[in-house]
Structures are given as structure tokens and as C-alpha cells.
Write a protein that binds this DNA or RNA. Structure first.
Lengths: 151, 151
DNA sequence: CTACAAATTTTGTTACAACAATAATGAAGA
DNA sequence: TCTTCATTATTGTTGTAACAAAATTTGTAG
């Protein structure tokens, strides 16, 4: 469905404007579907994102700074995000002994198991969204988006 | 900058995953810049969006349903959004006489003037974002995004 | 060794999003 | 007319986002 129909625009839109609407709207579609996927697990997409960053650390602890800079959507209060994960027993949090300003966050077995359970569903989500584009088009889309946001 | 560098990923990512990250991240870039633009005017992007919908009505009032379905990002509580615009004197709100369940929202002179003031800045924002792509690439990007989100 | 600046995280506050529950009105049928 | 259902909008509640201010620890210049 074209973006003009979606927002029921009566006038035809400039292409530069359309790109913005298309990106914003497509992001909403992605998020909505992803939140739907996560809902049964009582996990927000941000929380999931942090868990995956922690798994990517392969046993090394991550401090708040590291987590923040690896998040797609930078979130000013990582502390409270970690609080939630702590409550669910999905991560541990300890003061770093070398530098007591820092905090070491680690994913727990329970967190790892949850991710393992989610992995196939997330993969399916990613593949299903991209299923209307062939490999070449996907690569092209990546290139264009990267080029688009370069200032 | 490539999306892998941005999220400081150590492993190389699948293209289907990269598309998602690219769309989400690009949307963040767009929003951040747009909010920056609106900040001096004490207007949120949602509020701006509603004002533009109202101007698009060309004098005809819009009720809540109409506003909602034309918003790019559907927002469950349009009522409170309109409340804010009312407080600033940018819109009027009245009960529809034909059907008293409905509400007629209209943009005021003040609202129209604000939009007129913003128009060139918004245009500049749109053009500047798209400035790294030529016309052909922009159209291609629109096509690919539309195709991408089709289920 | 003290004082001051930088780095890192936490907390407070305000506003907004999501979702369900409620209210108000209208429409249609027994 | 009365009941019931559908439509439209508002409100309540809970959680989260944004942003600034504060707190804690470290490094360093005098």
C-alpha cells in the first residue's frame, strides 16, 4: 500500500517528503510486529535489545556506557531498564572492582535461555518482513538508507 | 556510517537484520533532527502533524477519527493531543451539531500562521535529508520501502 | 594531600504512550 | 417506547521517554 493511501493524503506528495513518511511508517510496522512477537514473553523491545547486547559480550560484563552506545535507540535511562531485567532475573548487576564508578552487567542463564527460545521467532520476523525483496534489493535498500542519512 | 559501526557490532550481520536496524536507526535520525527543528516553537512532532492535517482540511472541520487515521504514527489519545493545541490557541474544538458524538476540530489563524512560519524550515529539513540521493534513488527508496512492508 | 575537574551512574521530574474502562450519543428492531 | 448494540470520544492508570540535576568515584594539578 502506498504511503499516500495510508495517510489518506488528498494531494500528491513530494518524493523527499514521501521518503520520510515511508521510513517512519515502515519503522512503525516493524516495531508493532516485533512488540507483538515479544508480548507473550513480557519483554519490551528495549529490554530484548539489551539482552542481546549482553549475550554478544560472550561472558564479559558490560557497563552502562557500553550498553548505551550499542543500543539502536539510545535510551537515556539505562539504569531503570536494567532494573526491570534484574527483577526478572535475566541479568546481574555488580559494581566494577577496578573502577567503582562503573557497573558490570551480565546476562544470566535464564536470560540466555529466553534468548535461545526467542531466536527462531526473531529470525522468522526478520525473514518474513524481508520476504518481498530479493537479496539484491535488500542490499540496495541498505545502501540507500545508509546514504540517505549521511549528512 | 554503516549500521554495524553505529551499534558497534563485532559480528557481521545478516542483511535482513541490517535492513531492520537501518530503518529503525534512520527513523531515529529523522525524528531527532525534526524535533530539534520544532523545539524553538514548543511543538511536538505529533502536534505539528495534527496541525498539518487540519490545514489540509481546508476549512472543513476534522473529527477525532479523521485525525487519527491520517496520522503517520497512530496515537491512541488524540484527545489529550488536541488539549495541548487548544491551550496554545492553535485549534478550536466544538461538538458537531449533526452528530453530537463527534467533535469538530479546526485550525485557527494562529495555527495557520505558525505553519506558514515553519513551512520553509520543514522543506529544508526534508531536502537536506534527501540531499545525498538523486531523484532516481529517492524514488527507488520509496518503492523498496513500500515493497518491504507489504505482507 | 587538597581541591577541582572528568567520568560514570543514579535519581527526580515532567510529559507522553499504551491500553482498558467508561461515558455519551445515535441507530435499529421488538 | 424500550432495549440493545454500534460509534465516537474521554478518562484513568500504568509504564516509559526525555532531560536535567545530583551523587559517587577517579584522576590530576598545584
Amino acid at each position: 500500500m502506498k504511503i499516500e493511501e495510508i495517510i489518506k493524503s488528498t494531494v500528491s506528495l513530494d518524493d523527499a517528503k514521501k521518503v520520510i513518511l515511508n521510513i517512519v511508517y515502515t519503522q512503525n510496522v516493524i516495531s508493532d510486529r516485533f512488540n507483538e512477537l515479544l508480548k507473550p514473553y513480557d519483554l519490551s523491545s528495549e529490554q530484548f535489545n539489551v539482552l542481546r547486547i549482553l549475550r554478544g559480550q560472550k561472558g564479559n560484563p558490560a557497563n552502562m556506557c557500553v550498553i548505551q552506545e550499542r543500543m539502536v535507540t539510545k535510551n537515556s535511562n539505562t539504569t531503570r531498564l536494567i532494573d526491570k531485567l534484574l527483577l526478572k532475573g535475566l541479568v546481574t548487576r555488580e559494581v566494577c572492582p577496578e573502577n567503582r564508578r562503573k557497573i558490570e552487567v551480565l546476562i544470566t542463564e535464564k536470560g540466555l535461555n529466553l534468548l535461545t527460545e526467542l531466536d527462531p521467532k526473531v529470525l522468522e520476523h526478520e525473514k518474513s518482513l524481508a520476504s518481498n525483496l530479493n537479496q539484491e534489493e535488500i542490499i540496495l535498500l541498505n545502501t540507500l538508507l545508509e546514504k540517505y542519512r549521511t549528512l
